[in-house]
Design a protein around this nucleic acid. Structure first.
Lengths: 210, 210
DNA sequence: TAGATTGTTAATCGATTAACAATC
DNA sequence: TAGATTGTTAATCGATTAACAATC
């Protein structure tokens, strides 16, 4: 079982490699990828060895081979289908983002408590929460994006789990309580920004150029 | 110098403590906060000791004292003012999010290359990039949110830095190249989701309930 | 008092890095 | 060949945890 850090790094590698490929490269040295991703060459070699990707002793690694290995690691075969709960600002921004489709992730439906929103036309159907179980079961959905206001987040989360959801990407500023068999990851926009502000100030104080 | 992990945990504590306070509590035990945040009681006590917050040997910690210490750590005095580059879906979702204001972060202006967008009415003014230096200098702005499309991310990033920006919260799926004195943090929505999907599948396979 | 919790020290654990032999 | 890079092992580093004395 590899760490979540490893999994995260793989996606960073993929981003850089896709870029390098577009720019015309076929091979990378570990130290080149290091410069692109701000991970050390040593760590990259270790990660690639964990992925069982073999390089050429003096010619670096074949980019396509790495990309294939990364995609295989994430299970690139079938399209992943997920649902969205909450059609507020964040929910709308998410369904308009084409990057998910590009990576074979399809948001098949959305849920919202507000009937006015249910009646509006979006690129995906919007249902009331009552429809959730039906869709999760019929389409065998495992993962949901939770983008509802903080005050209803725990309750909607509970409902999603009740319906069979086992993985949640949560945008609400709340520490969700979930059973052990449910995986939750939080995107806390305010916290992210606060951290950038904090670390920027620190850099000013202690940085090389202060 | 504390780790970025420590800084991140503090914001998680704050979220839970604010919640617990609203629910009517005045004090917390380390193990209670542990249950809320999914960090160990031991780590929480260590973090609080790093923050120089003292508890009562048998009565736990005073919530307000912790909250004050956390806010002091982040420098709660003055309001932080930042700018936004890119008024696409994500940019719009961000300026509509009231949580930033709640935490004393003010987005004072936005920039977009598209003149049509510049003319639209939003809750904050939208300028062409040429105005950037003027605003960054006049208002002494350090931090920017970068929410432009991937293809222009590096170029807009370079311009921001040119104007004096030293901290960037980047939403574009790109590994930005920046000088050493600039702090960058990335929010990769697609990657976050891909990780949730991956870990959810893994839990199915290896989890307690498989 | 007995029991429970803090605060801190020492031990553990795991992730990253350094180093270098293998090899193209 | 000489030089450069991989692949792996051992060393380091730091973060987390365990343990427990202090104490309310």
């Amino acid at each position: 079982m590899y760490s979540t850090d490893f999994t995260k790094r793989l996606l960073t590698y993929r981003l850089s490699l896709t870029h390098l490929k577009k720019v015309g490269l076929n091979d990378v040295y570990s130290h080149l990828l290091a410069g692109e991703t701000s991970h050390s060459a040593s760590l990259i070699r270790k990660d690639l060895s964990r992925l069982q990707v073999k390089g050429k002793r003096r010619g670096g690694y074949d980019i396509d081979t790495i990309l294939q290995a990364i995609n295989a690691y994430f299970g690139n075969k079938e399209r992943d289908r997920i649902i969205l709960a909450g059609m507020g600002n964040i929910g709308k921004a998410i369904i308009q983002n084409k990057d998910f489709e590009k990576h074979n992730i399809q948001i098949i439906a959305s849920f919202d408590l507000n009937p006015a929103i249910q009646r509006k036309k979006f690129s995906i159907p919007v249902f009331p929460m009552e429809k959730c179980r039906e869709i999760v079961v019929n389409y065998k959905i495992d993962v949901a994006i939770l983008a509802v206001p903080a005050f209803s987040a725990q309750s909607v989360c509970d409902q999603l789990i009740q319906c069979g959801i086992r993985g949640i990407l949560n945008f609400a500023p709340v520490n969700l309580k979930v059973p052990d068999n449910v995986y939750v990851s939080n995107v806390r926009l305010v916290d992210e920004l606060q951290q950038v502000i904090y670390h920027t100030k620190q850099k000013r104080k202690h940085g090389e150029y202060s």
